[in-house]
Nucleic acid binder design. Sequence first.
DNA 1: TATAATGAAAAAATCGATTTTATGGCAATG
DNA 2: CATTGCCATAAAATCGATTTTTTCATTATA
Lengths: 231, 231
Amino acid sequence: MSTVMRTPDASGADSASSGATAASRVFDALKQDLIRGRFAAGQKLAIGSLKTHYRVGLSPLREALNRLAAYGLLEQVNQRGFRVPALRLDELDDIADLRSQLECKALTQALQHGDAEWESQLLAAHHRLRRADERPQEMEECEQAHLRFHRTLLAPCGSPWLLRFIEQLHDQFDRYRRLAPPDLEVREVLDRQHGELVQLAMARRVSQARALLDEHIDLSHGVARGACSAP
Amino acid sequence: MSTVMRTPDASGADSASSGATAASRVFDALKQDLIRGRFAAGQKLAIGSLKTHYRVGLSPLREALNRLAAYGLLEQVNQRGFRVPALRLDELDDIADLRSQLECKALTQALQHGDAEWESQLLAAHHRLRRADERPQEMEECEQAHLRFHRTLLAPCGSPWLLRFIEQLHDQFDRYRRLAPPDLEVREVLDRQHGELVQLAMARRVSQARALLDEHIDLSHGVARGACSAP
DNA sequence: TATAATGAAAAAATCGATTTTATGGCAATG
DNA sequence: CATTGCCATAAAATCGATTTTTTCATTATA
């Protein structure tokens, strides 16, 4: 069962499944590693090393790099390869501002269209998130659960392009957030907000939910700013 | 002078210039042909024919196709190649709605940040647009001028990611609009609105300008709907 | 000393051929 | 008659080698 990819991985599922090509596998792996900050910001990628590191040939690797550049997780300069984008405070502010704008819109629409089935899924996603948060040593587990929770929250908004952009911004944002020093106090507030979001969403309290999501993103934004050095 | 490409062609300029690679050239050509509707919607692309048509080898061609899929102008299914996305009314509505939302936001910010230099550029862009419109036989000329006008209008908004998404949506929207039967009456109104937009922008009348841009997009939307058949 | 030219080494991009996977017709089976 | 299995064909994906372009240390020049 292969996945239609008008966008890199529109389904949100990892292409680790059966019919995955080498290109899509290395795309997923590279994407994760970029978001997790495994490459230094601003660094130039040595294609030769990537080839050996990810155990793929040149062609699928280059195809993956091209996708990532089009997606915005890499910069491509014409005869001089690929590099990791720098982390810039002004860009983070831009990303966070747009996230607020788009996710609040999506939330409004999701509260209008979401049905009973969605409510169950949202509760389930929140439950998984809490469980994962109880074992913070499993970082990737937590991150996955967190991503899925936010996806589930906005999923029924009815606008594929809106969701696409939100996903893209989320990936960009996470590059910053994951590199920032963690703030356990803020972290607790953020966790609490997840539960409150579920309550407000189920009760269809649009404006309150919007305000809370806005605050949620803004708090995260404050933490993520710690990833930036100079400008 | 090569261009940084965190996105396909972030500068808006054609990569026909000096340091262009085969991949970026065929990317530009394919992108234009897709937007111009030279391929039937839903059609599967025969990579072999593309190779001969665009006179490039397999590797650069595949890299271009991968970029286009990540950009959303192609669909990619894992072991069965690339196809042109179908034209769907609900998707067009989605695109138009988002365009309104994002472009109005950008317009507001542009009116706040735009300086005198920008005003000159806007006047110039509008002048070129009018001149191009006088020779409607030069369709591509008109389209280019039109695109540049809208780019210039929003350019100083100060948000690279917002501009990126707007550009992407604009390309998607144009796929529909260019295939729709032209409506000369509406066309005249749209042309008039361009001039009015310039006036309102220069006078920094934010809310009036927003309302007009919204109407502008909505009118275009009505025309573009003519490109859709069934759903 | 600063600047420009040079050329070897490294990296990016591309090509041609091979391998892998899907597709569609046809026979075999229930 | 519908369904399944099999093969030949076609297409997609990948590999290995070649070509092109950049990089950078070195030398020549003003």
